[in-house]
C-alpha cells in the first residue's frame, strides 16, 4: 500500500473501530478515583487524631495507600478494579503500587533478581526517573532564581 492509501486506510479504520463507552467510563473513573481519595482522607484523619502532625500524617497516608494497592494487586483484585475504574484506578497512588506489584509477581518465575527485583520497575522506573529527575531540576532552578 502506498502512502496516500495508508492515510485513507487509517481514516477508514478509525470509523470501523467500536468506540469506548465514554460516559460510563467517566462515571466509573469518578466513582473509583473518588473512593480511593476518600479512603486516603479517612486514613489521614485517623493518623491526625492520633497526634501525628501534617507531614507525618501525609507520609503515613502514602504508606497505607501503597499497602492497600499492593495487597489488592496480590489478591488479584486490582486488575478487576482497573478494568472497571480505568483512570480512577490508575491515577491514585494505589495504581502506582499496582504498576509495581503486577510485573514483580508476574516475573517471579524468572528469579528474584532479574525477575522480581528488575521487573518491578518496568512501569514505576520511568515514573521515578522523571519524577525525581525533574524535582532535582526544580531544586536547581530554585537556587538559580534565589
Amino acid at each position: 500500500m502506498d502512502k496516500l492509501n495508508k492515510n485513507d486506510y487509517k481514516k477508514y479504520v478509525d470509523k470501523k473501530v467500536p468506540k469506548p463507552t465514554y460516559l460510563r467510563n467517566m462515571i466509573m473513573a469518578f466513582l473509583v478515583g473518588g473512593t480511593f481519595c476518600t479512603i486516603g482522607q479517612i486514613i489521614t484523619n485517623i493518623l491526625k487524631s492520633n497526634g501525628l502532625d501534617k507531614d507525618m500524617a501525609a507520609a503515613g497516608t502514602s504508606i497505607s495507600m501503597v499497602f492497600i494497592g499492593a495487597l489488592l494487586t496480590g489478591l488479584g483484585l486490582y486488575d478487576k478494579i482497573g478494568k472497571v475504574g480505568g483512570a480512577g484506578a490508575a491515577i491514585p497512588i494505589t495504581g502506582f503500587a499496582n504498576s509495581i506489584v503486577a510485573p514483580a509477581m508476574e516475573y517471579k518465575r524468572e528469579g528474584f533478581i532479574f525477575g522480581v527485583a528488575a521487573k518491578m520497575f518496568t512501569v514505576a522506573g520511568p515514573v521515578l526517573v522523571y519524577g525525581i529527575g525533574s524535582s532535582v531540576i526544580i531544586g536547581l532552578i530554585t537556587l538559580l532564581l534565589r
Binding site: 486488575d79 499496582n98 510485573p103
Partner: peptide, 13 residues
Amino acid sequence: RFPLEYGNQRKMS
C-alpha cells in the same frame, strides 16, 4: 501487553 494483575482497561478493538 501487560502483566496479568495490571489494572488496565482493554481497548474496544
